[in-house]
Design a binder for these strands. Structure first.
Lengths: 140, 140
DNA sequence: GTGCCTGCAAACTCTTTGCAATCCT
DNA sequence: AGGATTGCAAAGAGTTTGCAGGCAC
């Protein structure tokens, strides 16, 4: 069904449905959150010829279409994930690097307050918190 | 006084106090939040010969010493700022790119809750929210 | 004097761009 | 057929590393 909506969204704009675009969208859905390089790897398991350049261009396109979004976590690379029901807040551990998701409802009160006091509309799907996860806290 | 603590921290580790290190720390303090390149520019106004490499190495060192921290905002480059009283949460507008600071107390309740429910200790000095600022919301 | 630091240049990673060939519609 | 799309290679940002000379201590 995501393929259907992809095809429709593309057609609306006079763009084309290609195997690469289907595979890349599928990879983002399957992987949860992932960097362009991780998406590339995943896609290559199915279709070896797909170029990293195409991954970048397609992720940008999918973002314009509103099918995926990206967030900047700790290091350099952005991570992409699907748009939709499963939006989440990232908890990124600065020690071990792992990233877990929590229900965005947790930050809703803060988002509401910032909208009231500052007029700033927080994008709840893009929130990341850095810090220390439970395991790493125990070790130190 | 920050110079004093810099000197002490360095000496404790057998490291040396150099003009570059003083200038770079000062630049971070003066600039608020800034990228390595911005720090480099600021430092160069006082001492033209300082190399960008040194800026990178020194920022990393200052972070180890606990004098500065960095956050990843929207695009590629990280932004550094001093550690201390003036910690703040960043509100980054995805439309115009501006970044404003708010009192971290705003997210304290969320941080507390995440510590309770997940054991995750949020680093309040590193929080960034993406979204739309008041001005950009009006325009659309 | 010792060895930490710096500057320079080159290497590296991640991402973008130009262009000709290819493929969707 | 016709123009969007891809792959390849090269160019670009941003960052890191190696090494020889210089400087803090």
């Amino acid at each position: 069904m995501s393929d259907t909506s992809l095809a429709e969204l593309l057609r609306e704009r006079g763009l084309r449905l290609t195997p690469q675009r289907q595979l890349i969208l599928e990879a983002v859905h399957d992987l949860g959150h992932s960097t362009p390089e991780q998406v590339h790897h995943q896609v290559r398991e199915r279709a070896a010829g797909v170029n990293i350049t195409t991954v970048y261009r397609t992720l940008e396109l999918l973002e314009e279409l509103g099918l995926v979004t990206h967030t900047h976590l700790s290091h350099g690379s952005p991570t992409y994930h699907r748009v939709g029901e499963h939006e989440h807040v990232h908890l990124v551990c600065r020690s071990c690097g792992t990233s877990t998701g929590v229900d965005p409802a947790v930050v809703q009160p803060v988002a509401d307050r910032l909208l009231d006091t500052r007029g700033f509309q927080v994008d709840i799907g893009h929130v990341s918190f850095f810090g220390l996860c439970a395991e790493c806290r125990e070790q130190s």
